Simulated scan of single mutants.
Amino acid sequence: MRRKIIPYNPHLKELARLLRNNSTKSEVMLWRYLKGKQMKGYDFHRQKPLLNYIAEFYCAELSLVIELDGCSHTFEEVQEKDRIKEEELASVGVKVLRFEDKEVFTDIHNVLRTIEGYIEEYER
């Protein structure tokens, strides 16, 4: 099956590169488990431009975005932007899994189990 190519705003490429070079601690921690096809053989990318957004982690084969929320995501306006981003990504067939930074730090195994569970469901 050919995977769908999702368009992106080319102006985001430089910002995505900057974000890759300045990752948060939670992104660095999760990336250790996603890079190099360690997650059930799937290829994940960091800071991937999609539509008018930059996804923190993206797997094209799974049509999956993984987002990590820090303290700024407690603000209502940030949550509204997240909701719109999720809706727009869903409109092109992309599922978003969202975790809080503190989950990555305190319960990484549950975060990984949730991602694995999504993959197992996807493969069925």
Rank of each mutant, 00 (worst) to 15 (best):
R17V: 08
L18D: 08
L19K: 01
R20T: 05
R20H: 03
N21Q: 15
N21C: 07
N22V: 01
N22G: 06
K25N: 10
S26E: 08
E27T: 00
M29D: 09
M29I: 10
M29F: 10
L30A: 08
R32N: 13
R32S: 07
L34G: 01
L34C: 05
K35Q: 15
K35E: 05
G36Q: 09
K37M: 11
K37A: 11
K37E: 14
Q38N: 12
M39R: 09
M39P: 05
M39G: 07
K40H: 10
G41A: 06
G41C: 12
Y42H: 13
Y42D: 00
Y42C: 07
Y42S: 04
D43N: 13
D43K: 15
R46W: 04
Q47Y: 01
K48W: 04
P49C: 11
L50F: 07
L50I: 01
L51T: 03
N52G: 14
N52E: 03
Y53G: 05
I54V: 14
I54W: 03
A55N: 11
A55H: 08
F57G: 04
Y58W: 12
Y58I: 00
Y58N: 07
C59D: 09
A60L: 06
L64E: 02
L64C: 12
L64W: 02
V65W: 04
I66A: 03
I66N: 03
E67A: 06
E67C: 11
D69R: 13
G70R: 06
G70M: 05
G70K: 02
C71I: 14
H73L: 02
H73C: 02
T74K: 15
T74N: 14
F75C: 06
E77F: 07
V78G: 03
E80Q: 15
E80N: 13
K81R: 03
D82S: 05
D82Q: 10
R83H: 14
I84R: 07
I84V: 15
I84M: 09
I84Q: 12
K85I: 02
K85R: 15
E86T: 13
E86S: 15
E87N: 14
E88A: 10
L89F: 09
L89Y: 08
A90F: 12
A90D: 15
S91M: 09
S91I: 04
G93C: 08
V94I: 15
V96L: 13
L97S: 05
R98L: 04
F99A: 03
F99V: 10
F99Y: 13
F99I: 09
K102C: 07
K102F: 12
K102S: 12
E103F: 01
E103V: 01
V104N: 06
V104Q: 09
F105S: 03
T106G: 02
T106I: 08
D107K: 04
D107C: 07
I108F: 06
N110Y: 05
L112W: 11
R113Q: 13
T114N: 00
I115F: 00
I115W: 00
I115T: 00
E116A: 00
E116K: 00
G117M: 06
Y118C: 06
Y118I: 02
I119G: 02
I119K: 05
I119F: 05
E121L: 10
E121K: 14
Y122S: 08
Y122C: 07
Y122A: 09
R124I: 09
R124F: 11
R124D: 12
